[in-house]
């Protein structure tokens, strides 16, 4: 059901991990729906994304779109990164099954959320960037086993 590229990015995800003291961190998605993406950006003084890492809870498509999104934003300027759409992520992966399109939307949102965090931390305004929805549901109690 998945393209070879999706399988490759799922089985060998690029840029998994965290960035200590990242310039921006964004977490999107919802544990209820089974998808959470967290994206870390390291951005230099010229607003160029030097590094990008991710962590994702989700299906094969969610992991693969996260991985591809990190590849796409690396080396881009903040403004360029903002223009990366879910369509671009999907195309780069040679497509996704229809039921998985929402995973690519999550990747786009994760980039935006991380950029928003960066802008807030630095007190700057990025043209065309809206405050991301936060629906991670952290208020939910963790159950002990």
């Amino acid at each position: 059901m998945y393209s070879e590229k999706v399988m490759d990015h799922f089985q060998n995800p690029r840029n998994v991990g965290e960035i200590e003291e990242a310039s921006g961190v964004g977490t999107v998605g919802n544990a209820k729906c089974g998808d959470i993406m967290r994206m870390y950006l390291d951005i230099d003084d010229h607003q160029v994304i030097r590094d990008c890492k991710f962590k994702t809870f989700g299906c094969g498509a969610a992991v693969a779109t996260s991985s591809m999104a990190t590849e796409l934003v690396k080396g881009k300027t903040v403004n360029e990164a903002l223009k990366i759409t879910n369509q671009a992520v999907m195309e780069a992966l040679d497509g996704l099954p229809p039921v998985k399109v929402h995973c690519s939307l999550l990747a786009e949102e994760a980039i935006h959320a991380a950029l928003w965090d960066y802008a807030e931390k630095n007190g700057i305004k990025i043209e065309g960037l809206a405050k991301p929805k936060s629906d991670i549901g952290e208020e939910e109690e963790e159950e002990e086993y």
């Binding site: 998945y2 399988m7 089985q11 729906c33 089974g34 809870f57 989700g58 299906c59 094969g60 498509a61």
Partner: peptide
């Protein structure tokens, strides 16, 4: 962790299983 990811990785090792995950 999420079930579908588990299933794909198990499949990579030749193991057939199933999950109650939404995906």
């Amino acid at each position: 962790i999420e079930g579908e990811s588990m299933l794909i990785m198990l499949d990579g090792k030749g193991i057939c299983a199933s999950s109650g995950s939404a995906c």
